[in-house]
């Protein structure tokens, strides 16, 4: 009886709030501050479709929500990073992209399409890409730093920063040991863990919110950083240098995907085409600070941006570079176990 009363109450409240079928909108589910407002405004102006921009702060949270919501998910477009595309594709969370409705796909860098994460780009269209490399504050560090292995140097005790990202941190240790950053071999992962425990006394902090900040705060002198952050960090700390380590950087790619239950897939396709216009892609890259995969856009970029080696690496910088791949669930558990041991200092 009580429950019935409550249910009625709820039902009344609900019908009062859920509106009738709305006209076409675009529900964009994206990282915060990862799309200039100007682009959204211009899209609405051109197509008449309003954009509702909702944000998330990690791939994990985005994935968990899309997966849980399933049928009731109301997102038309999301922007997962690298291997989350393959993960979501394999778990049937995505709608295939209708290439006939996309204009400008040919503008994309051939190096960044048809990757293992999504062969033939059936489910994803690259948006922005970047790398995770070494940051060195040359004001406080003497001598050349060229490799991830240099982090283990004793003179950096208490001055090292790592990203707060399990996969990336293990990636570095695995590369130093000569393994693949996507290793699924438990022995190799354990060896990487052992290697990282040697590094722990040097590690001052983990940061994946804004990895440039510990350098600017003066807390750390050397460590990991994302290239876009390094570019931004130079504004406040001109001596902050972005180094491509000999063992290879970690590369990642954020792509547009359309969730399986999108209500406005047409608007989503329209938006992707809109972003693929060279002029718009260039605008995004200059505003956000990461590299656009749109080759046609690169010619439109400001000289200083286009020639910045941190944002747009040359071919030698990319030697040994590795994209992260989906390592599967079993390996993930092994990583998670060692990560927890590492962080809690055992």
């Amino acid at each position: 009886m009580k429950k019935l009363a409550l249910a009625t109450l709820l039902a009344v409240g609900l019908t009062g709030c859920s509106g009738s079928e709305e006209p076409q909108v675009l529900n964009l589910y994206n990282w915060s501050e990862y799309m200039p407002q100007e682009v959204l405004d211009r899209f609405t102006e051109e197509t008449g479709i309003p954009v509702v921009y909702t944000t998330y702060d990690s791939n994990e949270a985005m994935y968990a929500r899309l997966k849980l919501l399933d049928e009731s998910a109301a997102y038309d477009l999301a922007v997962p990073s690298t291997y989350y595309v393959s993960k979501m594709r394999q778990e049937d969370l995505l709608m295939p992209i209708d290439r006939s409705k996309i204009e400008g796909f040919d503008n994309l860098d051939p190096e960044l399409v048809n990757l293992d994460i999504d062969p033939d780009n059936q489910y994803s269209v690259p948006y922005l890409w970047g790398t995770t490399g070494l940051a060195v504050d040359t004001a406080d560090v003497d001598g050349e730093v060229t490799a991830w292995a240099d982090l283990w140097d004793e003179r950096f005790e208490g001055r090292v920063m790592l990203t707060n990202d399990m996969r990336e941190v293990f990636h570095v240790a695995l590369r130093v040991l000569g393994y693949s950053g996507n290793s699924t071999n438990p022995d190799e992962i354990e060896a990487a863990y052992e290697k990282l425990t040697e590094l722990m006394p040097s590690v001052r902090t983990f940061n994946s919110d804004a990895p440039r900040m510990p350098y600017l705060e003066g807390e750390t002198d050397i460590g990991m950083i994302w290239n876009g952050e390094a570019v931004m960090g130079r504004d406040g700390l001109p001596t902050l240098e972005y180094v491509y380590p000999a063992e290879g950087i970690i590369a990642w790619l954020d792509s547009f995907v359309i969730p399986k239950n999108a209500k406005n897939p047409d608007a989503a396709h329209q938006f992707i085409s809109f972003v693929l216009q060279p002029e718009i892609s260039a605008l995004i890259s200059e505003d956000i600070g990461y590299a656009t995969p749109n080759l046609a856009a690169r010619d439109l970029l400001d000289e200083s941006v286009a020639n910045d080696r941190a944002s747009y690496p040359n071919a030698t910088d990319m030697i040994n570079a590795e994209f992260q791949t989906d390592i599967g669930d079993e390996a993930l558990q092994v990583y998670a176990k060692y990560w927890e041991m590492l962080k809690s200092g055992q």
Partner: peptide
Amino acid sequence: DILGGSRNLLVGNVIKNQFLDARN
């Protein structure tokens, strides 16, 4: 995460990681 450099973990951190990162 912000002030402890992610090194002085609280129980809350461990549980959050289990749900989101390790998906256990």
